[in-house]
């Protein structure tokens, strides 16, 4: 038996290219988050379709060398969405969206194509941690007041109207708005207790 076959030298490893499937598995959360945020008010495009197209393009033309896959994939998703918006069919919507969502791009790594990819990823990861803190705070709220947590999740998280939620719960729309408002305040205080200040 050749003992050299049992170890992987650095040279071996460096010649191995990353599997696109493995890279996707590792970074799909970041890709989806960026796509969802950018497409929040876009009723024509879906995150899963955009990401599918990005991955198909990468499968067919794998990049030569990528220093930071997360930044690369996030940028690819952003560019794909911008391309869609620039297309003639969506020019009008793009104008509205540019006006409509001035903060999303900043939150998730910036709108400028020339941004530093590394800083984008740092910002993205930090935002991801913030969202995890929010999930933890929502779990606490669930224990404190399940109805408040439910109403907030439905209204703010899933963007259902207060009337839809009211009809479901058999209460008035104004009562839902009161509960949602109280829940937002409670969330802010829970986040502040976790040293996350809005």
């Amino acid at each position: 038996m050749d003992p050299r076959q049992d170890v992987v030298s650095e040279a071996d490893v460096s010649t191995v290219s990353l599997d696109v499937a493995a890279v996707f598995l590792k970074h799909r959360e970041a890709m989806y988050r960026v796509a969802y945020a950018m497409l929040r008010t876009d009723h024509h495009n879906q995150a899963v379709d955009v990401i599918g197209e990005v991955m198909v393009a990468i499968l067919k033309n794998p990049p030569d060398s990528v220093g930071n896959w997360e930044a690369y994939l996030v940028r690819a998703v952003q560019n794909k969405i911008r391309d869609l918006w620039k297309s003639a069919a969506h020019r009008h919507e793009q104008l509205l969206l540019a006006e409509a969502t001035p903060t999303e791009g900043d939150r998730l790594g910036g709108d400028e194509v020339e941004d530093d990819p590394a800083s984008e990823v740092v910002e993205l990861l930090s935002r991801q941690q913030t969202v995890q803190t929010v999930r933890a705070a929502m779990a606490e709220m669930e224990a404190w007041d399940p109805q408040a947590a439910y109403v907030l999740w439905q209204c703010a998280g899933l963007e259902r109207s207060s009337q839809q939620v009211a009809d479901e719960l058999g209460i008035s729309g104004s009562r839902v708005r009161q509960i949602a408002s109280k829940a937002r305040k409670k969330l802010i205080s829970l986040l502040e207790a976790k040293e996350l200040h809005l």
């Binding site: 959360e29 989806y32 969202v131 929010v134 907030l152 998280g157 963007e159 969330l187």
Partner: peptide, 8 residues
């Protein structure tokens, strides 16, 4: 933030 938490 709740919206973001609901969209993963």
């Amino acid at each position: 933030l709740v919206w973001e938490a609901a969209h993963s």
